[in-house]
Every structure is written in structure tokens, then in C-alpha cells.
Amino acid sequence: MSDHADNADSKIYQTISAGVAAARSAPALQADFRCHFCEEEVQLELLFCNSDCRDDYERLNQAIRRNGN
């Protein structure tokens, strides 16, 4: 017989699995010689020109996800 703890463990496992699957299926940024936030030219393998642009990009995307867009 399962008890409340077993049911809770199952629900937690399902939630974590769904989150991991969503993270793995999210499209990854590709390096293309430009900053993904400000469009400034960058070296081949960089995604952002500096940490400020990276942080601003992440904040903007988090806000978009929170607002459901």
C-alpha cells in the first residue's frame, strides 16, 4: 500500500522529470559573431560581448516567460 509520502515522492519525481525534459528541449543559442543582446560583434565562440549583456538577456527572457509571452 502506498502512503502519502510515496505519493508525494512520485509527484516530486514527475515534476523534476518534466522540468529536466523542458530544459533539454529548449533551443540553445548559437554563436554567430554578434552579441545576442546588443548585436555588437564578438569573437566566434562567444554569445555575448560582456557579462552585463548576458545578464540583461537572461533578465529579459525571464520577464517574458513570467508574463507568458
Rank of each mutant, 00 (worst) to 15 (best):
Ser2Val: 14
Asp3Ala: 05
Asp3Trp: 05
Asp3Val: 09
His4Asn: 14
His4Glu: 14
Ala5Cys: 03
Ala5Gln: 11
Ala5Val: 15
Asn7Pro: 00
Ala8Met: 11
Ala8Phe: 09
Ser10Thr: 13
Ser10Gln: 11
Ile12Asp: 05
Gln14Arg: 15
Gln14Lys: 15
Gln14Val: 08
Thr15Glu: 06
Thr15Met: 07
Ile16Asn: 00
Ser17Leu: 10
Ala18Asn: 08
Ala18Thr: 11
Gly19His: 05
Gly19Thr: 06
Gly19Asn: 13
Val20Cys: 01
Ala22Cys: 03
Ala22Tyr: 02
Ala23Cys: 06
Ser25Pro: 00
Ser25Trp: 00
Ala26Met: 11
Ala26Cys: 07
Ala26Phe: 04
Pro27Cys: 04
Ala28Ser: 07
Leu29Cys: 05
Leu29Phe: 07
Gln30Ser: 12
Gln30Asn: 07
Ala31His: 02
Ala31Phe: 01
Ala31Asp: 00
Ala31Ile: 07
Ala31Ser: 14
Asp32Thr: 14
Asp32Ala: 15
Arg34Met: 09
Arg34Asn: 08
Arg34Lys: 14
Cys35Ala: 06
Cys35Ser: 04
His36Ser: 05
Phe37Thr: 02
Phe37Lys: 10
Phe37Asp: 02
Phe37Leu: 09
Cys38Asn: 04
Cys38Tyr: 02
Glu39Cys: 09
Glu39His: 11
Glu39Tyr: 05
Glu40Cys: 06
Glu40Gln: 11
Glu41Gly: 01
Glu41Ser: 10
Glu41Thr: 12
Val42Ser: 00
Val42Lys: 00
Gln43Asn: 05
Leu44His: 02
Leu44Asn: 00
Glu45Ile: 08
Glu45Gln: 07
Glu45Arg: 10
Glu45Trp: 03
Leu46Asn: 06
Leu46Ser: 06
Leu47Phe: 06
Leu47Ser: 03
Phe48Pro: 01
Asn50Ala: 05
Asn50Tyr: 01
Asn50His: 05
Asp52Ser: 10
Asp52Pro: 01
Arg54Tyr: 04
Arg54Ile: 03
Arg54Thr: 02
Arg54Ala: 14
Asp56Gln: 13
Tyr57Val: 06
Glu58Lys: 12
Arg59Asp: 12
Leu60Tyr: 10
Leu60Phe: 11
Gln62Ala: 14
Gln62Val: 11
Gln62Asp: 10
Gln62Ser: 10
Ala63Asn: 09
Ala63Glu: 13
Ile64Trp: 02
Arg65Met: 12
Asn67Lys: 14
Gly68Ile: 10
Asn69Phe: 15
Asn69Thr: 13
